[in-house]
């Protein structure tokens, strides 16, 4: 069963959310995905994630509440896992 690490960057000023996410991704164990809680959708960060070989799914929960699931694209088992987790967030 894949592992999900949660990181809340909602109260950080740019560019700290991006720095914290990159730092956490570097420390992530194989088979783990990252769930980021943010007050905005970090659009400028997405091309960078793609270049680093990560995929992501984001969900808007409220005007100032987003969750973003990030995983290594090469680990195919993580995509359905993050999809399910994202769907659960929307339903709850």
């Amino acid at each position: 069963m894949p592992n999900l690490v949660t990181l809340d960057v909602s109260d950080l000023e740019p560019p700290q959310p991006m720095e914290r996410i990159l730092e956490t991704l570097r420390q992530l164990q194989p088979g783990s995905a990252l769930k980021v809680q943010h007050r905005r959708e970090p659009i400028p960060f997405y091309p960078m994630l793609k270049e680093l070989g990560y995929s992501r799914i984001s969900r808007k929960l409220a005007e100032d509440r987003f969750v973003i699931f990030i995983w290594l694209t090469e680990d195919a088992s993580l995509e359905p896992f993050c999809q399910q987790a994202a769907n659960r967030e929307t339903e709850s």
Partner: peptide, 12 residues
């Protein structure tokens, strides 16, 4: 303002 200064959104 909301983005850079972690402030609430302006009223819609």
């Amino acid at each position: 303002i909301p983005m850079f200064h972690v402030a609430p959104a302006f009223p819609k």
